[in-house]
Design a protein around this nucleic acid. Structure first.
Lengths: 213, 213
DNA sequence: TGGGGTTGTTGCAAAATTTCAGTGACTCTG
DNA sequence: CAGAGTCACTGAAATTTTGCAACAACCCCA
């Protein structure tokens, strides 16, 4: 099962292109940097870039793709006796408390978001990533609870949990772009999370509780 | 204040382009139809099309733009003694009960959604419209309640209400694309709305209640 | 170890989207 | 009615994106 040279090179090339592109975008902006420039800097042809990334936006959002499975992963990993929403709350609080870059609590996240902010097509794509997160979560909930296909509850709960996550990411983004201090934002968001938990109904907070053995 | 010949022609041209484009997209799909074909059919130059619409997607989503103010309008028009969420629930139920095309309960909505479904860039753009709806609602809530800028509550409530709306539109879309009967979907969605109302906390249901004179 | 199939890469070319600067008709003001 | 300004429209160019055929590096198996 050892990975061949071919596959490694492929992965390396892809990563290199994405990294170089991201760096260029952060420095000069998304619209100004052309695909040709990216290809030049990465020392590949333009076609090779398109071989890995369907569109220009994918060059920048490639790393955001791991967020897609975050919520479903957290839910699947919930403790015994813990509900889906409770698990997500716990995990989010953990990330926020530790001022983790994974939730954007880092100085340079600002530059990242700035690129997205000034490129409408990128912003659109980011929202559709959020949508993927929710669809993914819904599937996980349906699987974990064994709810039938016509049961709307997984859809609804996924929406509620996604609201939680999306709002937190949104607020963090807004504050970081404003140049706030990560530690400070962390403290504020923890308070916000308390507010949000209070806004969730008991039905949401008690959905998909993992059976205690 | 009479509208000059210039402005009328302008509006007419814009509308004509959008209409023709939409018809072509519905018939042949979004990717297949080229801007040049749209321009030809509308008897204008390609550049004129771009004069009115910043990007190809805007040709199709132009009519969806009035959805942006829907939630904020409903909230601003809430009855005395009625909360923001209650007003939205009431209005949505009204639209669904009357099997209104405004919420997509119509046979030909299917073709409309099909165009969006098979064009990733269009789908992205649609999500960002939803986002605009929420931002708009948040602003309305902040204005109506007079909440200070650092009060997170309007953001949170807007998110909750937007969840309501977005989920309803999503379910309707899904069912209509599946070829379901509008009347039938209407009945189902009314039940769904009851489920959703039960999932909303009292805090949400009682936010921004209009003072009784 | 060598050959045949697979596959990533590339150059070339074309189609389509999108941007830009100019032009001419219309409008408004004095 | 003269002149300045505005604005829709146009032609040309830049950029993104797709398609195809060729090439070379890698992988697998005899």
């Amino acid at each position: 099962m050892a990975e061949g040279l071919r596959e490694r090179k492929k992965r390396e090339t892809r990563q290199r292109i994405s990294d170089i592109a991201t760096a260029l975008f952060v420095e000069h902006g998304f619209v100004t940097v052309t695909i040709a420039e990216v290809a030049d800097a990465a020392d590949v042809s333009v076609n090779t870039v398109y071989n890995y990334f369907p569109a220009k936006e994918d060059l920048f959002l490639d790393r955001s793709k791991d967020v897609v499975h975050r919520l479903s992963r957290w839910v699947r990993g919930r403790d015994a006796g813990e509900s889906a929403a409770a698990a997500v709350l716990r995990e989010v609080r953990g990330e926020v408390e530790t001022v983790s870059p994974r939730v954007g609590l880092t100085k340079d996240y600002k530059h990242f978001l700035k690129v997205i902010h000034e490129a409408p097509t990128l912003r659109s794509r980011l929202w559709s990533v959020q949508q993927e997160v929710q669809e993914n979560l819904e599937a996980a909930l349906r699987e974990e609870t064994g709810a039938p296909d016509d049961d709307p509850m997984p859809t609804l709960i996924a929406g509620q949990i996604n609201w939680l996550h999306q709002t937190v990411m949104g607020v963090i983004g807004r504050e970081m772009v404003a140049g706030r201090d990560p530690e400070e934002v962390s403290r504020e968001v923890l308070l916000l999370l308390d507010d949000m938990e209070e806004l969730l109904s008991e039905k949401v907070l008690n959905y998909a509780v993992r059976r205690v053995e």
